[in-house]
């Protein structure tokens, strides 16, 4: 498979923080265009580090990251939005609580011209009526689930080709969790966007994903179709620390 075959290709990625030890040890990963892929694994296995390295927040020590068929390894995080069409939805503190809902969404429209900004904003308001109803209210007034939708909407306004989500269900009620996962599928079906997410809630995440990678100690332990993974006895072993 050439590196042009997947929207996200990670080859031999080694990464860590500061002068500390490697968190990721030569990791390979591929996500095809339009695919929903989940990264799973126990705490400390390097899931979030992998997502941050793909997003550009953690510079790789070795290896390469290709996004949308372009080498993104050395591209600073703030340029990836524009050059590699990457949208990122952080795990926590993902809304600007002192601003209105509308302004929070418009924060993501930095590179758009005014007409484009208006059109996309209007389209998002149609897609997210719960946010549209509160567009002029401060984001601090939103529930946890609404904040997550707001964070997703803000990433979508730039019309990314790739969406990276860091634990989108973290801290949500079961009802809101389902709503967020359903929304992830709707986004992919509507736009054909490639979606890579890190999740702790394995069952719900696998239910909406095509494939999944399970990490253990900074390496890929399992790569499998999502529908088959829940029946894989290795998965429970990894979560229980058997590996």
């Amino acid at each position: 498979m050439s590196k042009l075959d997947g929207m996200i290709v990670v080859e031999g990625l080694r990464a860590g923080y500061g002068d500390g030890p490697d968190i990721l040890h030569g990791l390979d990963l591929r996500v095809a265009a339009g695919e929903i892929v989940t990264i799973l694994g126990p705490n400390g296995c390097g899931k979030s580090t992998l997502l941050k390295a793909i997003g550009g927040f953690v510079p790789p020590r070795a290896g390469n990251v290709y996004i949308n068929a372009q080498d993104a390894t050395a591209v600073p995080v703030h340029r990836r939005v524009r050059t590699h069409h990457v949208g990122f939805v952080p795990q926590t503190d993902n809304v600007f609580t002192t601003l209105s809902v509308a302004d929070n969404i418009l924060l993501g429209a930095r590179f758009l011209v005014a007409t484009e900004r208006r059109q996309r904003f209007a389209a998002l308001m149609k897609s997210y009526p719960s946010l549209a109803n509160k567009r002029d209210r401060r984001a601090s007034a939103l529930s946890g689930g609404e904040r997550q939708l707001l964070s997703i909407a803000r990433a979508l306004i730039a019309d990314p080709a790739v969406l990276l989500l860091d634990e989108p269900s973290a801290g949500l009620s079961p009802v809101m969790m389902d709503e967020v996962f359903d929304e992830i599928v709707r986004i992919r079906d509507r736009t054909g966007m490639t979606i890579l997410m890190v999740e702790q809630n394995a069952a719900q995440a696998l239910a909406v994903s095509e494939r999944a990678y399970v990490l253990s100690l900074g390496r890929v332990a399992i790569e499998q179709r999502a529908s088959e993974l829940l029946d894989n006895p290795e998965l429970a072993g990894l979560y229980l620390g058997a590996h």
Binding site: P76, V77, H78, V81, F88, P90, D93, F96, R110, F111
Partner: peptide
């Protein structure tokens, strides 16, 4: 000021 990493992820050049 509030969220530097978040700002960078939205394309802001810190």
């Amino acid at each position: 000021r509030e969220e530097p990493q978040f700002a960078a992820s939205l394309g802001y050049d810190l």
